[in-house]
């Protein structure tokens, strides 16, 4: 754990989280959620949890994003809020 690196990563995680819940285009929100998962994965790598990090990178950022893109492509892309 290195303090400045940790703070920068946490800042990016916050930006991605707030952007993912405020953007009205659902496809963009889902892709930003994938970027959020990758930043989370970097954060866990620097907390010495590498197994959790690559499980997150493959399962949550990979399969989760694919599932959500599939669901958005089967439903509507615009959202009202």
């Amino acid at each position: 754990m290195i303090l400045p690196f940790d703070l920068i990563l946490v800042l990016f995680v916050y930006i991605c989280a707030i952007a993912a819940i405020t953007i009205k285009d659902l496809l963009s929100a889902v892709v930003i959620l994938g970027a959020y998962s990758f930043f989370m994965c970097l954060l866990w790598t620097q907390m010495a949890a590498i197994d959790v990090a690559f499980t997150e990178a493959s399962v949550s950022a990979g399969i989760g994003t694919v599932l959500m893109i599939g669901a958005v492509s089967k439903t509507k892309r615009r959202s009202n809020d």
Partner: peptide
């Protein structure tokens, strides 16, 4: 942030994104 998105957003996919966060 996740809790607020689960309660205040009306779109169902947005609620699921909030649950993920």
């Amino acid at each position: 942030i996740g809790f607020y998105a689960m309660m205040a957003k009306r779109n169902l996919v947005k609620k699921i994104i909030g649950m993920n966060i």
